[in-house]
Amino acid sequence: MSMDKVQIPWTDSDGKPGFWGALHSLPRRVYHSVFRSRPIPANDLERSQAVAANFFFHLHSAKVQERTLRFKTTLGLGLLSLYTFVILVVTGILLMFYYVPTPVEAYDRMLDLRGAVFFGTFLRNLHRWSAHAMVGLVFLHLMRVFLTGAHKAPREFNWMVGIVLFLLTLLLSFTGYLLPWDQLAFWAIVVGTSIASYAPVVGDELRYVLLGGDSVGAEALLRFYVLHVAVLPVVLTTLIGLHFWRIRKDGGLAKPREK
């Protein structure tokens, strides 16, 4: 199958670009240096290319089973979990610009966010409610996967990754809970970390390392902050990547057996 000769747009009929020709085609050259497909694909091959040649889209296969797109199949819960996480990352990074993880400053910064920072209240609210939503959605997603039998072979490993992702979500939410340094935060963490000390053998040591001392104080706030904004998000993002990659490697969403 021979390709038709395509006229490269910045050449004249002799194949030599003139100055104006080159200038005229500059936007096009720049566009094609970035994107390898047209903005609106015209045929099936281009549609496939649009997905396969795009860094962000290539999580998808070029074609997907129609079944997986039906709302009933997944209720969209996995995607919803991802979206709340994306919102949390964006709002969280913005909030970091104003937050100071010390007992002296933290609470005042909360008040500043509420009173003095433009858009501050909204971003904090969005971060807070998205966090609650994410915990709920991730759990609903877990329920969906189990109730549709999607955890069974060959998807056992991805199910386990999912369980770890759920636990990480809880940990992220829990570490973030302390940061406003108000009564609600403080005592929830006092109670929560004391539970850790009941773990056999390593319990007391675990609590000591987690809090950086014997009680919830400046060290604990700093540690929870680092866990919340750096350690856990990086681990979570990495595992989300693994989770998505495994969906494809395990053959897409679980599908009913043929009769």
Partner: peptide, 12 residues
């Protein structure tokens, strides 16, 4: 790294 995380002095 684990030992590093265990503080030797506390500030409480």
């Amino acid at each position: 790294n684990l030992i590093f995380l265990r503080p030797r002095v506390t500030y409480g």
